[in-house]
Amino acid sequence: MVNLQRNLHSLKAEFHDKGDAAKGHKTLMKLIEADKKKELAHLLRNHEEEVVYGRELQQRFEVDTLLETYNLLLIAILAGYVPPALDEELSAEIQKILSHDSVKPYYEKYYRYKLTDYTLQYVTEKKYFTNIEPDSNISPLNVFIALSRLLDEDEDLEVFLAMLDYVKYGDIGLDDVIEILSSYEKLNKAFTTKRKTDEIKSIWGFFKYTTFLSQLREVIESVDNNPLLQSAMWLYHGYFLDRMNTRMKSIFVTAFKNLSHVLASPEVFQNLTADFSATDKTNDYDEQELKDTAHQIMEKSKEDVLFMLDAKWKKPMMEYFGN
């Protein structure tokens, strides 16, 4: 248990005590302790009531990071990395923030994030997970952390995910990006141009996010001995996988249809190594084999996306918490 306490300290130091999560914590506690309910509710309002931008938007991102940290703690418990019962100080903080009347609507109603509900229930009702072997799933936890960090740090992914969440950049929205996926010339230009417009960033973001989903599938499948952990990892990314499930299915079905169209164009596989040295490189590969591989990769990616968009992954946590 000593090691698990040490791990908890390390996890808190990295994900809670510095950076955006620490700022989010400071903002919330300042408003809660001053009993500024209205101000807090206004900060965490539904953006459809009143547009959010500038400093407020940044503060909300910081709050989002803090909520993710609380949820990551739940995942770390399930992975056997930290003790099932968090220390008193941390438990009290989670309860104070997540059960606050001005905070609850933010993650329960306006931007539904079910895992946060479960984290609160876990701490409040002491619904401790049992039979978790210490250190049992450290590797998947580390890979999960690394993958999830990528989503926060990559600019291409940021633009793509914002567009997926209905944000427009000038006149450009996700439909325009998906349309480009049907044109070989435009895609080739997007991948070889030096200047990345928001549209091009989003195209890169599409490929990166699809790859992310394939990699997340691998992590989730690697912990099939622990359905609750699988479920929690899925729900951690529930803002898109759960809340935007229908939109994602529709977008990705069209995107893969468009990509199939591109792969059917003969010019895709012609003069593949024309830019390399004068040495004949055609012996390096077999064109038909390459075509087959490309199609297999696309089909596999499609399968991975549909796998990740299967709502069955939330069931184990729903059943455990009874809602």
């Binding site: 080739n188 790859t211 394939s214 591989t293 696309m298």
Partner: peptide, 17 residues
């Protein structure tokens, strides 16, 4: 083709490496 993960490997083909 071997090293790029998932759908990312198609970028290699489309960009002609």
């Amino acid at each position: 083709m071997a090293a790029l993960p998932g759908l990312y490997s198609l970028i290699g083909v489309i960009a002609k490496f």
